[in-house]
């Protein structure tokens, strides 16, 4: 379990090392942390989605982190962390994705379904509940 938001972000970023859509991991980390400083993106029910629009990714990337114990993000104790990297040009895609997540992650039963997911299929199917 991560002890802080930065630690949680670093652990999620480490999974992207080999991702073909990644251009520069350091730049992505810096962009996400800069964004966190300005105004950490949070949702009720303990969801954090640190993200950044940056050219350090070729396409949208998303890493999902589930923690049984709440992680102290500024303003929320997060159990579900969605780390997102979006290319600069993809403003519409970014807004579409953010809108989707913000709309679906407000229901407690959806969140429970996501938290208990054992794989990506179960995770995605949890959204279908809504």
């Amino acid at each position: 379990m991560a002890g802080s938001d930065v630690e949680a972000i670093d652990r999620l970023l480490s999974t992207l090392q080999e991702n073909p859509n990644l251009v520069d991991l350091t730049a992505l980390r810096r962009a996400i942390l800069d964004r966190q400083k300005v105004d950490p993106p949070l949702l009720p029910m303990g969801v954090a989605f640190p993200h950044a629009r940056t050219d350090s990714v070729r396409n949208i990337v998303m890493v999902i982190g589930i923690s049984p114990e709440p992680i102290p993000f500024p303003g929320v104790a997060a159990r579900l962390v969605l780390l997102i990297g979006v290319p600069k040009k993809a403003i519409s895609e970014y807004l579409e994705l953010t809108s989707f997540l913000a709309r679906h992650l407000r229901g407690e039963h959806v969140l429970d379904g996501l938290m208990s997911a054992k794989g990506i299929e179960q995770f995605l199917s949890a959204f279908a509940v809504t």
Binding site: R35, L42, R53, Y94, T98, S99, A102
Partner: peptide, 22 residues
């Protein structure tokens, strides 16, 4: 960039100017 999303109230508090500016 934003006109298609103006009817999405869920974005109002999670997206900031820095996210969508050029």
């Amino acid at each position: 960039d934003v006109k298609a999303f103006l009817d999405r109230p869920e974005l109002e508090t999670v997206v900031i100017a820095a996210d969508i500016m050029d």
